[in-house]
């Protein structure tokens, strides 16, 4: 603690990159090279070269067949179904998840118990079992009706098999179990916001709902988004389970082809490539949204997203300049 405050310019006398000292030596520090750097690079390059060699010299990959089916109509249709299922199931999962999280944090014991029961139930049963269960719901309840309880007259009734298609079964099975996981993620995010934030908002006279949506949820987003990104990616892959209930998503589409042509490996590679592409795009989006919520307000714009992509030379320029003094915090 012997900083001479009487000479404010004192620190600027030894700038980095100063001229060589009197003895002719440069006193700038040279970083020590990473140990084994060359060796690890060499091993890595050999492994990559071997992988490329295998990919191009193994005839059973049948790359020409991969190319032939990569953009085929039925595959693209399956891909679009996969994407649609992902979006709908995640939407159901997020909306129901927020509701369940709020119930779980409620002061009302009954509501809290309902939320806990929901989460325990839907987290416990494997998604594949749920899919089969929902798909075969007609075997349990041949008709579904809305009416008075305990077998009273029904106002409205449908045959279960008319309502439960592979698509609705998929949404119920995957969306409802996703909601259980999202509820826990959202709850964690809400709990991560300091209670002082709620207090300050309530003290200003804001209502409880307004406090939740304007103050708590935007701040919780920082903690909610990274795990939600993982959930979306899991959901993309999880939709392949739906092939078991005869829904023609991506995996089912390629299966339908190779069961005819017996070109199993190349068609599975087609599916793999599409899953890779979709998750890569999602990962880029996730990284951007995280960066966005980490520092700025929760509003989105296409221009901001383009600015974020690495193609743009001034990608990371902050919207609000930091104070020039910098060190007064």
């Amino acid at each position: 603690m012997s900083i001479d405050t009487s000479r404010p310019g004192a620190r600027s006398e030894s700038p980095l990159g100063a001229a060589p000292t009197a003895a002719g030596r440069n006193d700038r520090i040279t970083p020590r090279p990473h140990p084994w750097g060359v060796v690890t690079w060499a091993i890595g390059l050999i492994l990559v070269a071997q992988l490329v060699y295998i990919l191009f010299t193994t005839p059973n990959f049948q790359w020409d067949v991969v190319g032939q089916w990569f953009l085929a109509g039925s595959v693209i249709k399956g891909l679009l179904t996969t994407l649609l299922l992902t979006v709908v199931c995640m939407a159901v999962g997020i909306v129901v998840g927020i509701v369940v999280a709020v119930l779980r944090l409620s002061r009302n014991r009954l509501l809290k118990a309902i939320a806990v029961a929901y989460i325990s139930f839907f987290r416990a049963i494997p998604v594949l079992v749920q899919l089969l269960f929902w798909y075969n719901l007609a075997a349990l309840f041949p008709t579904l009706s809305v009416g008075l309880p305990f077998g009273g007259p029904a106002f409205f009734s449908v045959h279960t098999n008319d309502v439960i298609t592979p698509f609705t079964a998929a949404i119920l099975g995957m969306g409802l179990s996703e909601a259980a996981f999202m509820a826990e993620i959202v709850r964690g995010g809400i709990l991560s916001v300091p209670p002082g934030q709620t207090e300050a908002s309530i003290a200003l006279g804001l209502s409880r709902p307004r406090t939740f949506f304007r103050v708590v949820l935007p701040q919780a987003m920082r903690f909610i988004i990274p795990p939600t990104g993982n959930q979306v990616i899991n959901m993309v892959k999880g939709t392949s389970l739906v092939s078991t209930i005869a829904m023609s998503e991506l995996l089912y589409s390629v299966e339908a082809v190779y069961q005819r042509t017996f070109e199993t490996i190349p068609l599975l590679i087609v599916a793999c490539l599409w899953y890779l592409i979709v998750t890569a795009v999602l990962f880029a989006g996730q990284t951007w949204i995280e960066a966005h919520f980490a520092q700025r307000r929760p509003s989105f714009s296409f221009r901001a997203f383009v600015g974020f992509l690495p193609i743009h030379p001034r990608a990371t320029r902050p919207r609000v300049p930091e104070p020039p003094t910098g060190g007064d915090v």
Binding site: P194, G196, Q197, E199, A200, S201, V215, P218, Q219
Partner: peptide
């Protein structure tokens, strides 16, 4: 408040 509690977002 002691901890200011400004809304950081």
């Amino acid at each position: 408040f002691q901890q200011f509690n400004l809304f950081p977002h």
